[in-house]
Design a protein around this nucleic acid. Sequence first.
DNA 1: TATGAATGAGTTTTCATTCAT
DNA 2: CATGAATGAAAACTCATTCAT
Lengths: 187, 187, 187, 187
Amino acid sequence: MRLKDEDKQQRIKEALVRLILREGIDGTSVSKIAREAGVSPATIYVYYENKDAMLAEAFREYAHKSYEYLSGCILPDMNAGAAIDAVVRGYYRYSSEHEDVFSFVEQCSRCPTLSSEVCEKDCSCDIFESIHEYQRRGQIRECSDWTLGALLLSPVRFMAMNRASMAGESEAHLRELVEMLQTMLLL
Amino acid sequence: MRLKDEDKQQRIKEALVRLILREGIDGTSVSKIAREAGVSPATIYVYYENKDAMLAEAFREYAHKSYEYLSGCILPDMNAGAAIDAVVRGYYRYSSEHEDVFSFVEQCSRCPTLSSEVCEKDCSCDIFESIHEYQRRGQIRECSDWTLGALLLSPVRFMAMNRASMAGESEAHLRELVEMLQTMLLL
Amino acid sequence: MRLKDEDKQQRIKEALVRLILREGIDGTSVSKIAREAGVSPATIYVYYENKDAMLAEAFREYAHKSYEYLSGCILPDMNAGAAIDAVVRGYYRYSSEHEDVFSFVEQCSRCPTLSSEVCEKDCSCDIFESIHEYQRRGQIRECSDWTLGALLLSPVRFMAMNRASMAGESEAHLRELVEMLQTMLLL
Amino acid sequence: MRLKDEDKQQRIKEALVRLILREGIDGTSVSKIAREAGVSPATIYVYYENKDAMLAEAFREYAHKSYEYLSGCILPDMNAGAAIDAVVRGYYRYSSEHEDVFSFVEQCSRCPTLSSEVCEKDCSCDIFESIHEYQRRGQIRECSDWTLGALLLSPVRFMAMNRASMAGESEAHLRELVEMLQTMLLL
DNA sequence: TATGAATGAGTTTTCATTCAT
DNA sequence: CATGAATGAAAACTCATTCAT
């Protein structure tokens, strides 16, 4: 028998993500994904139960990967200020380098039928653990994880979303954002 | 007669927004909207050129209304700290009282084919004008509008999105958020 | 608005029945029915919830019609022997004149997912009422309705099914069948 | 090796028959059969040319087996009355003990594309031979094989089909049926 | 203006079958 | 022989839109 082509599933997932960036969630059909991935529509059903399951699975995976990437931004020898800088810039860099994945995860997070499947906070444990360590050491203000997530991630996500409108000034805006977050969070 | 028509268009818009909260952008069809609004699918085409135009028009209108609401939160006699508090709590309150509109606007903002039509920053001029006034008076730190929008609106939007997960602790989280924003922004 | 074309639903039902005679239940698709009826496949869904509902509804209707026809075969002034003759020949005649409906009902009756919907005995009350009257008058042997149905209807149904194989001898076989049933049932 | 293969083909046939009882002819796909039989879809094509051939072959075989069983019901030392009793009860018993096979053969017989392949009368030669012998001996009324088949087999088939609805009274109905057939057929 | 019927073009999904191993 | 992956073709069904009234 033919071996399950590991590469094929990957191509499907990537096609899905690319298409959603270009055409939005409601402009993305199974046949378009198949064409983009260079497989038959029927092949998609070899790998996924149905369209919703495919979306949910890809969402879960890419949301997780984003947070994994983020976790890797804080290096053990950084001080608290550097850590904040690293997270903000890291997230922004990620969103630039993986525009499709970023847009995909953003769209899925806002979709009520999908977001219930994946909890944003659960995925982000690792950065939070690092921040908690800084808080224990008295370098970062105590606050709830919700507040932390809201302040550390949402603003940069907002800038990432509006990258196009910010034109060449993104570096300046990022620097300003980092400074203000440091002011607020560092003790 | 005139009133009846306006009412009908209103019902269509509300049906659209309610449905998108329940089923997401890609689960919302013209016939479903018609059924939800209690009109015939054909009637929708009396008021809107086509589905995309309807979405765009409603998006524009509700995005604008959100910012209008926000603008009304800052009263002339407030000091800078109170203004920050008012904006954050006002936005959160709005998202609670208009869950459907909030979810609708959020979903549309993330949709690449729609978001190009409406620019977030343009709509928000009014709060920014107020904040600029505080900055001119030396009560709020100077910073770009992007940074301002990112810090003042995104975090509370994030909390609004996760209202359900925060359960009864939303008030505490809001208070914390406001305090931290004041620390950062007030001079 | 356009009026619901009463004729259109009829054409769909007739197309369904004709096709099932030609190609069997599993050779009959919605698009084939649509082509046969001269409508668009989508139009079928204006009249029926889905394919199964269409089958069930048509089955119910045609099964009922068959029994109605049968009921009309026994005239008030017939004696018991004539009634038996009338039922047997009437059923056979019906199956000849409505070959498609007959084959359709036969196929549906044997399909486990459809037959549960329509109970054969329920539909046949009228002939049974007539027979009961003859029994009360002492002209026909007492027996359960199941036995009655089994003897009065199944054999002729069998002959109807094998019409083709019996070639020109069907009249002779029918006569023989009627005689034997009269021997058995008349007192 | 030889044994293993035979076993596999048997499992496929049994899966086919079980599925058709549960889901009807049009609810039965090759993949479902494969899953039910615990083999790969491709394996089915090792044993059968294609789906239609598989159906036809299984139909032929099981129809034949049914009649073989029936033939075995009439023992050499039975008198005519006992033979009628044995055939009716035997058929009913068979349909109870092989519900799946019975339903399968019934469904196939009604399907125009399948029934043309297998002629019912051809398969049933053995009982008819026995009955002819009784007729030659003057114990059973002369009549055509069609009438014989119609009267001896269809009624009990009807009862078998409606087993569920007859609940616990099937024995009583069978007794009544046998009695009436004896009245009619015995000289 | 308002509508429910109607539909071409699309959707998601399944199917019978073949292929590569 | 046996298989799970792969797929073209077709299934069932939905959609945005238009038409006739």
